[in-house]
């Protein structure tokens, strides 16, 4: 179990031509072990950048990210990633994709097989072990991605719009699955999403980010994720706090988007 701290992280991208973009400014966050945090924000506010820094794909210009106190300097198997789509290895079948992490570690075959069977059961793909990736639907592919990440048993799971490309119904099923896995495994999870509903339903904690420079704008603590474990997500939406919170966040993001548009108008 792992604690994750993001300390005064700033990120500046230098662009050709001498200009630069302040993608993140002074972002500080602490996640306790087993916390599920969703991140919302208008497009371009630095969500992906933040996640990439936590994953270790980018080094921040200032500040640091630490797992259990150890500073992150690069990608590592204790932080698993689930990408939006297209990150599966299409030259491997479902089983080989899921067993990739353990295989790289050189885990004994029998043990590995057990893990794979179990996880494919969990995500409901037991019958598709030997299928090629391109034979699966989008939702199935994301379940494979989830299983692949879990097979490596990371402490922290980072998800960048993992359900963004799915249809509403599949998406709801996957949301339930994520909640269940979160509760069962006790992983620390950061989930980036564009859907306010998803952020509300899945976010035990919810961060709203603001753009230019990318920073934390508001933070919520919500009861819905806990209620949603094992329950019908549509029932959760009837919770008296649900609609007001959703309206508030929608307005917030709407205003930010409008501000960006306004600024671009002035600039040009």
């Amino acid at each position: 179990m792992a604690e994750l701290s993001i300390e005064n992280v700033s990120m500046r991208f230098d662009l050709p031509g001498g200009t630069s973009i302040q993608a993140l400014k002074d972002v500080t966050l602490h996640l306790k072990a087993g916390e599920l945090m969703s991140v919302l924000g208008p497009s371009g506010c630095g969500k992906t950048t933040l996640l990439n820094i936590v994953a270790g794909f980018l080094a921040p210009t200032e500040g640091r990210v630490a797992i259990n106190g150890r500073t992150v300097t690069g990608p590592g198997p204790e932080r698993g990633m689930v990408f939006q789509q297209g990150a599966l290895f299409e030259w491997m079948n479902v089983r080989e994709n899921v067993s990739f992490g353990p295989r790289m570690k050189g885990m004994p075959k029998a043990e590995m097989q057990q893990i794979v069977e179990h996880l494919l059961d969990v995500v409901g793909l037991a019958d598709f072990k030997d299928k090629a990736i391109y034979e699966l639907s989008g939702g199935m592919q994301q379940r494979v991605a989830l299983a692949r990440c879990l097979a490596n048993d990371p402490d922290v799971i980072l998800m960048d719009e993992p359900l963004g490309a799915l249809d509403a119904l599949t998406r709801e099923k996957m949301q339930s699955l994520v909640l269940r896995l979160w509760k069962e495994t006790g992983k620390t999870i950061i989930l980036i999403t564009h859907s306010v509903e998803e952020a509300l339903l899945l976010g035990e904690r919810l961060i709203v980010m603001a753009p230019r420079p990318g920073r934390i704008h508001r933070e919520y603590r919500l009861p819905f994720a806990d209620l949603g474990v094992g329950a019908d997500l549509r029932e959760i939406k009837k919770h008296p706090d649900y609609d007001p919170t959703r309206e508030e966040i929608l307005n917030m993001i709407w205003n930010m988007e409008e501000e960006i548009m306004g600024r671009t108008e002035v600039a040009t």
Partner: peptide
């Protein structure tokens, strides 16, 4: 190669040669 595939592999603990 899609960069997310390489990132995914690194996050799954693969070494450079892997």
């Amino acid at each position: 190669v899609r960069i997310s595939k390489v990132h995914a592999a690194y996050s799954l603990g693969a070494s450079k040669s892997q």
